[in-house]
Every structure is written in structure tokens, then in C-alpha cells.
Computed example of a mutant assay.
Amino acid sequence: MTPITEVEGRRISLSNLDKVIYPASGFTKGEVLHYYASTADVLLPHLVDRPLSFLRYPDGPDGQRFFTKNVLPGTPEWVRTAEVPRSEGPTRQILVQDLPSLMWSANLVTEFHTPQWRADAPARADRLVLDLDPGPPATVVECCRAALWLRERLTADGFHVYAKTSGSKGLHLLVPLEPTPSERVSAYAKTLAVQAEQEMPALVVHRMTRSLRPGKVFVDFSQNAAAKTTAAPYTLRARPEPTVSAPVTWAEIEACEEPEQLVFTADDMAPRLRDHGDLLGPLLTGDEARPLPVKAPR
């Protein structure tokens, strides 16, 4: 019998709580739900008002994985949705605005992915993202080197820069912006990626071509496009272990000499939050948002 749990007055069916989702560590679905409940205070503000895409992996990272953007059949009527424009016509996507909708979504076993814009301003980005993806044998150590250079360039243009692990192999850099058309943000981000490759050709590549990527860091600027999404802060990832897309300090990036130094799992997050709080909190206030420069990066 599927247990029914009441969360802030909403009745939610939570299924298969003993099912092992992460076989390498024995981490169960119940532990997945506990993780999301215990990090809701910091996770939810990064999801609110952003139409979500779900990367579902109900049978674990070795099972079937599939993206879901449209509102799912059986979605409770109290889960909020938003109309989202698409080239083929508008559709509706889920908004996770509160703890009940977070727990209902987490019961699907999903990574949470968000666009760089909010539902009330489609395709007007309030942040820039650069996804640093290492091509083996490069690792997150090389990503850290590229991240430090990119931080310097972005800082020179007046921006505040924040970082988190991807929860997979690389790093994400995040920059708060005054709302700006996504195509302008994409063009600026591409210019940065190209310049990084020009300055560090042995380390960085800006094109996705697989043959160019071994041993280098791919600076993926494409996630700034209005139709693209990025793994949300604090989301679990569909990896062998329950790794988290975890905010990190620049001191940790500067000190990184081994890939394991920047791998964080669900069990690591409570002590990290006690020590650091939400390192990405400034992204939420808008106080540090800056306009894009009129000219291309120097």
C-alpha cells in the first residue's frame, strides 16, 4: 500500500521508499526524499518561479533516463504551472513553489533543471551561466583553472561570479544580471568562451566537437539560450553516487588539486550548509545584478 503523507496540508502519495536508487551506496528513494525535505529551505528559492524540466531516473542512474518538460498526467491540481512559449507553440510547465510541490516532484526521482529566466519574463535572463565540462583525461582540477581565469575576466566587466559543482564532472559559473534578452546573454557568453580559448588554447575549447575536447575544458555557453536549462543548485544528479550540484567557495576552487576535493554527496550537504549557508544566496536578491557591457569583453 502506497503511504500517504501530509505536507503543509497537502496529501502526497510517496511510493517505493525502500527502493535502492543509488546501488553503489545503497541510497534509497526514502533517503532521496529526506534529502530534498532537509534542504528545501535553500533549494526552493532557486526553483521558485522558474519553469522546471525534470530529468527522471526512477530506476536509478543505470536505468532509463528521460527529460520531461510538459506538465505530467496526474499532476495534482494544487501544483502550480506556467505557460511557456516555444517555437512550436506555447505549452505549460511545472513550477515548484513550496514544500508540497517539491516533495511531489522529488517522489518522481528527478534532477531539477531550470532556465536562466523566470516565468513572468520568458527569455529575459536574470543570470548568466557557463558550464565547464572536462574532456578526459582532464578533470574538475582543470575546470578550476579555467574558472579562475573566467572569474577574472567577468570581474573586469563589473560582475560578481559564483560557482557550484555540476554534480557530475565539472563546474558551473553563475553571474547575476539585470534582466536581459537571452540572445544577448548567449552572445556575450560565447565571446567569453572564445576569448578563453584564445588565451588558453592548451586548456580550453569553446566548440562542442567531441574530437576537440580530450584533455581540455569545454566552456559551454549554450545554456544561456532561452530554450536551454541547467541543473539547479542542490539538485541530486543521476550518477553512481548521490552527488549534488553543490555551491563552492572560490577558496575551494583555488585549492583544488584532486578531483575528489570537489565531489559532494547528499550526506555532505548538512554540514556544508551549517558552515557556509547558501553560497548562492546573492543570486536571489538582485542586489548584485549588473547589466551586460555595451561592448564585447576586453
Score class of each variant (00 low, 15 high):
P90E: 12
R92T: 11
T75Q: 13
L55G: 01
P45C: 11
R80W: 01
R50G: 02
P51N: 04
T91D: 12
V79Q: 05
P76I: 06
Y57M: 08
V79D: 05
R80V: 03
P85H: 11
R86C: 14
G63D: 08
R56I: 03
P58V: 06
Y57I: 04
Q64L: 15
G60F: 00
S87Y: 11
T68I: 13
G74E: 08
V84H: 00
T81R: 12
H46T: 07
A82D: 05
P73E: 06
G60Y: 04
T91W: 08
R56Y: 02
P51L: 03
R65C: 06
L44T: 04
L52F: 03
F67I: 07
P61D: 06
P61A: 06
S53P: 03
P51R: 01
R92H: 14
W78L: 10
F67L: 12
R50Y: 02
G63M: 09
R80S: 15
K69D: 13
P90I: 05
T75V: 07
V71Y: 08
V79K: 02
F67R: 08
T68F: 11
K69Y: 08
A82E: 02
R65V: 06
R56T: 14
P85K: 08
E83S: 13
H46G: 02
P45T: 12
T75I: 01
Q64W: 14
P51C: 03
P73W: 03
T81A: 09
D62I: 06
R65Y: 02
R65W: 00
V71K: 05
V84Q: 00
S53E: 15
F67E: 07
E88D: 15
E88V: 12
W78T: 10
N70K: 15
P61I: 03
D62W: 12
V71H: 09
G89P: 02
R80T: 07
Y57P: 03
G89N: 10
L47V: 04
P90V: 04
L47E: 01
P76W: 07
R56Q: 15
L44I: 11
D59M: 07
R92W: 03
R92A: 14
D62M: 14
P90S: 11
P76E: 10
Q64E: 15
G60N: 05
W78V: 10
